[in-house]
Amino acid sequence: MADISSNFLGIKSPNPFWLASAPPTDKKLNVLRAFEAGWGGVVWKTLGSQVKNVSSRYSSVDYGRRRMMGFNNIELISDRPLGINLQEITEVVKLFPDRAMIVSLMADNDRKSWHELIMKCEDAGAMGLNSILDAPTG
């Protein structure tokens, strides 16, 4: 049997399949389910200054009889309090230490905000950071 374990910059995961920073990775309950299913790692949904999301949030393009050939999303970064996200990240890392835990960040556009957020994420147990310079819908 081939060895499908992955080493990304020293961040190890049992397989090369991570969940991208998006709605499925925005809280402990989902991420635990993902890890139980076998995902190698997650990029926790982008943290920054807390936002408010709207309803509705998604639309899609169907093609023929297939649903969701393309998917469109207007959800912003995490709308949960930063402290809760960080606490849950710590808890998940303790429960699944063999999985990659990357935290996605988009701080306000100044050096101090980025530094504070990076420090908090590292303290929470992040193994890597995903810096978002783009508008992170989803």
């Binding site: 081939a2 399949f17 991570w18 649903r67």
Partner: peptide, 25 residues
């Protein structure tokens, strides 16, 4: 070096990773 997935999981659930693991192997 690796991949990240979102839409497929939102469409079909987290268990799609089982096929991804066995298929890659």
């Amino acid at each position: 070096s690796n991949v990240q997935v979102c839409t497929a999981a939102m469409n079909h659930g987290f268990r799609i990773v089982e096929d991804m693991i066995s298929g890659l192997n």
